[in-house]
Amino acid sequence: MSRIAGVFENLRSQGRAALIPFVEAFDPDRDTSLALLTGMAANGADIIEIGVPFTDPMADGPIIQAAGRRALNAGASLRGVLGIVREFRHGNDKTPLVLMGYLNPILSYGVAAFAHDAAQAGVDGLIVVDLPTEEADLLLPEAAAHGLDFIRLIAPTTSDERLPKVLAGSSGFVYYVSITGITGTRTASAEDLARDIPRIRRATDLPIAVGFGVRTPEQAATVAKYADAAIVASVLIEKLTNTNIATVLADVAALASGIHHATKAAA
């Protein structure tokens, strides 16, 4: 069983959802990212998503765009991100790590070499924003060959007919982009989630994570009521920019507590 599947199985037996915080690698430097990863794992993160900086992050809002620019100025590269994962794994063999990014750095690295090196470094799953199912044959076979979970994005615009096609070959969990828009802008309401999550549930047995616009412990609890995981990104980056690592970790702990106290909606 993959690390990701193991985490969700364990949480299911506890009857609670997962918290997936986000770290933009190298924002503002390598040491901060490592400290955040280690600290988040100790403060209630069940899985951690690592943003791989790219010059042209088309699905991201101003906050993650700015984080990516700071990271690139600090010398971020895909190779460097794998280095961070490798170092994190020296002290943590349990928390799943998912890389989220754009296709071109992977193509530039070489798809086969990347899948091999990512798995070796201790990466568990991949989310490639600009690789829709129509183009997935570029990466999916190599990811599968190296045991990397291939996590697909589902959007409000994804029709019921399209869902099985998009989910083909995916594993780990499903990432529901809960709004039509870019990261860190709008937030889906409880009514939206009550309508959308069952629709996806009917198409897959995989756990469903909700991202884009989850900011507060209350919102995370709402997500946890309907879905299996809440992904929190922009608000943590904002906090890091304005304060320090300790405050971010306190927020992660508060978000985790919000999720732990959430009650599941009747299925």
Partner: peptide
Amino acid sequence: GGRFVAETLMPL
């Protein structure tokens, strides 16, 4: 060529 866009746009 091809269609390398986020899933939100793909149906469009």
